[in-house]
Design a protein around this nucleic acid. Structure first.
Lengths: 157, 157
DNA sequence: CGGTTTTCTTGAACGAGTCAAATCAAGACG
DNA sequence: CGTCTTGATTTGACTCGTTCAAGAAAACCG
């Protein structure tokens, strides 16, 4: 880590507080944590931390560019510190585990739609849906088919 | 439309009911409607229709492959009848208007990640975030910058 | 037309997230 | 080092989208 969290907070115009440092530490250890996970983990360091404080901290971190919020459909929001680079996410349909994917291709034709219907696009968000290794091992094969069936018609890129 | 809704419902093993036909009609007129919109619109045809019935109908339609559910981050779920083809969505950050985007490129390199971290991927979902024409016209330029700032670090494909 | 099964209605409940007022702490300044 | 000002956190209530459960209604089969 080049700069400390203190420095990053100050650079974003934010005060350095215990709740913020606790949340940053948790996010560094768990790259895609939801609010509940963050609260629970942060309380080992700061036992009186309230969920609302965590919402406030995360809002400040996202606004300050220190954290990013991702919201997989049907799951509570997740937060990550990896910011400012070009990466997407793999999400497990069964356990909502998330893994990062680097975009391996420089120019991605599909991500600059030809007809934008009058929209000015500033971000292309890609989510890869599937099953993680652990859930595949636990899950009988027919359940996998059910999961896929429920989402048939989904885009394949 | 090649086949009638009655036929499509039966083909999916679903009974043909008034609530279902009402919801299908609304979705045909409004391609990306949320539950509230569907309930309100469907009541012009079927005044006693309950919100819970609409949830049930939509769940059945999605399970039967007649409709697709899309959940833009931070907005209630939207439903569309366009199913089984390869298209993505443009979403307005300001008004959550949604437009369809056809994927104009046959092979999309970015959508087959090289390292899937043990995941078996069955769907790549792409959401383009931006501002629609109407909101750009209404919105002062600095507000646009704020919106973009709030999401800096987002992937650009 | 009657019986069986699915679907709808009605009412309650849940989880994630937000709002607002009061308290508290961080950092600036003297 | 203490005070002051502003920003952050706590506490508590609340909203919204969605889901659950039991009984009533309707669709479909024969």
């Amino acid at each position: 880590m080049e700069t400390t969290w203190q420095e990053q907070l100050r650079a974003a115009g934010l005060r350095v507080t215990r709740p913020r440092l606790s949340v940053l530490q948790v996010l560094a250890e768990r790259p895609h944590a939801d609010v509940d996970t963050i609260v629970t983990a942060a309380r080992t360091v700061h036992p009186t931390l309230s969920p609302q404080a965590v919402y406030g901290v995360l809002e400040a971190l996202v606004a300050g560019g220190l954290a990013r919020r991702i919201e997989p459909a049907g799951a509570p929001a997740l937060f990550e510190l990896r910011v400012g680079d070009n990466h997407h996410h793999l999400v497990c349909r069964s356990c909502v585990a998330v893994a990062d994917v680097d975009c391996t291709v420089g120019a991605a034709p599909c991500l600059t739609p030809s007809d934008t219907a009058g929209f000015v696009v500033d971000e292309a968000e890609v989510v890869f849906w599937g099953l993680c290794r652990a859930c595949r091992a636990q899950t009988p094969a027919d359940t996998v088919q059910v999961l896929q069936h429920d989402n048939r018609g989904g885009a394949r890129g």
